[in-house]
Design a binder for these strands. Structure first.
Lengths: 233, 233
DNA sequence: CGTGGGCTTGATAGTCCTCAAGTCGGGTGG
DNA sequence: CCACCCGACTTGAGGACTATCAAGCCCACG
């Protein structure tokens, strides 16, 4: 998933400029948008990570996806008229707030931008489909391997990152909430992955020791390369 | 999720007419589209049910969503250029095949239709988000209750169906593949739901005995009314 | 130096899976 | 019309995986 607002033409750029309202900066773990919100806003993440999630009562939540720099938050809310999930910052974060009317204007006046938005949503949906497959069919090791490979590849697409080594700001509890497991079991499974020489988390970075084996686990379960498709806009 | 091709204006209707290629009829459990397919087609379901799924090796598959009459198949494939999942008929089924170029044309020449497509994908995505939440957080009873209520409400939105009674063509194995459980356990859990006087499946129809309690279980876990949002086009 | 949050680890219990056998019903061929 | 057959469903016993709960550790922070 690349920066969806790169290489725009003049009309599109003008629309975007006009829609930019303000810049927001957030400490880690702060709300950016809340489920059922009515005053919907659109955000473009400038730097830092965020995540989408749903609360399901009982002190339990499901993380639906992680959002990386260059990506957009709230696009579906502007289409459906209502937030269907919440968003929080994972790390320190900076985002540009955009006028939500941008979405409608894009479809009317800048078809290429509208198409780009549609592709973006389709790609997000495809990623959730993959995620669902892994939760439905995979055990703890496969789930963790999938998420790691997926986030590694998404970063590799965008940034020059060191080989087999990339930022990984997720805490145990984020992994647990994303993968439908408990923090305790996440921990035990991470130990096994490290002991088996596959991968380890060190100082909030992912250190991959055996990418082929790790990717084999991740891709076997998701039915395709974890983390694809990406949107090349 | 209603029929997304209702109440179009003249331009849109003309586009649609021109794009209609042929009608296909399928027996139950036949492939309509396959993962990684390149010759992508767009289908509008005229009658019957279908389902989207991914294979994850090991003889295991994950059903991602069920598709009801009036809905569209393959929209994201035309946006992303590639099928990311397979589709099969669940019941006997009739569908109209549409020229996949319709998608691009809609965004260029019929903005309202493009917007409708985007909304449709956003709603599908929102439903997958809900599904993911239920798989991540819910136990067997909650998962089954959620799927039942979700499919009941989707049908109630479209059709005049008898109160607390609607078609339900899913076999045990479909429930299992959708909910990340085994057929055996599905069966045991269905027994419990029937014994508790909540709901039963009879002659391929859903018979709801206590909607408030069933819906309470379903909605508690998904963090909102199961099956919404619908797209009112 | 005290405090708190995140991490780690162990023991126990519960949910769900696996495998296998048996039942039922509808369709087919004799 | 009946016997057969196959797939879907049902049920049971044992085992695997993961949750729950609780305690101790470690480090960053005030």
């Amino acid at each position: 998933m690349q920066d969806i607002l790169r290489s725009l033409d003049e009309t599109e750029r003008a629309l975007l400029e006009a829609a930019s309202i303000r810049t927001v900066t957030l400490a880690p773990n702060r709300p950016l948008a809340t489920e059922d919100e009515v005053g919907i806003e659109l955000f473009r993440i400038e730097y830092g990570w965020a995540y989408r999630f749903r609360d399901c009562g009982k002190g339990c939540r499901q993380i639906l996806d992680f959002i990386l720099p260059g990506e957009i938050v709230g696009l579906e809310a502007t289409l459906l008229g209502r937030m269907e999930h919440s968003v929080r910052s994972l790390t320190q974060l900076q985002a540009t707030a955009l006028d939500p009317r941008l979405t409608g204007q894009a479809f009317s006046n800048a078809p290429q931008l509208g198409l780009r938005f549609a592709r973006y949503i389709a790609a997000e949906k495809s990623r959730v489909d993959q995620f669902l497959t892994v939760l439905g069919c995979g055990d703890a090791i496969e789930r963790i391997a999938f998420l790691m490979v997926s986030l590694y590849r998404r970063q590799a697409q965008r940034d020059k990152i060191g080989p087999l080594n990339c930022p990984f700001p997720l805490r145990r509890q984020h992994l647990a909430d994303a993968l439908g497991l408990t923090g305790a079991h996440i921990n035990r499974t991470l130990n096994r992955l490290r002991e088996d020489g596959l991968v380890m988390i060190e100082d909030h970075r992912l250190v991959i020791r055996d990418l082929p084996r790790l990717a084999a686990i991740a891709d076997s379960i998701s039915g395709g390369p974890a983390g694809s498709p990406h949107v090349d806009c």
